[in-house]
């Protein structure tokens, strides 16, 4: 199953599962919830942290968190 860490630049995806205990509540509050859209905004140095557009919020998270969040790539 792909995770946020697998997204390519500009690719959009839907969040599937956020049940992992490693996901901070703050990220959910930013809108990282099942069914919501997520997009990798641009490539960044070392691909870590990742620069994302989650549910219309621009947010950066580390790769180690990104691999915990399963997504379904839509475009």
């Amino acid at each position: 199953m792909p995770t946020i860490a697998d997204l390519k630049k500009g690719q959009k995806a839907k969040v599937l599962d956020i049940s992992s205990d490693f996901i901070p509540l703050k990220l959910l509050e930013m809108g990282c919830l099942p069914g919501n859209d997520i997009q990798l905004v641009q490539n960044t140095p070392f691909r870590d942290p990742l620069y994302l557009n989650i549910n219309d919020s621009y947010v950066a998270i580390r790769k180690e968190t990104a691999i915990q969040i399963e997504v379904e790539i839509i475009s």
Binding site: P24, K26, S57, Y58, A60, I61, R62, E64, T65
Partner: peptide, 11 residues
């Protein structure tokens, strides 16, 4: 210690 890192990138 778990290392959470969530940063908003404002306009």
């Amino acid at each position: 210690s778990s290392s959470y890192f969530v940063v908003e990138m404002p306009d």
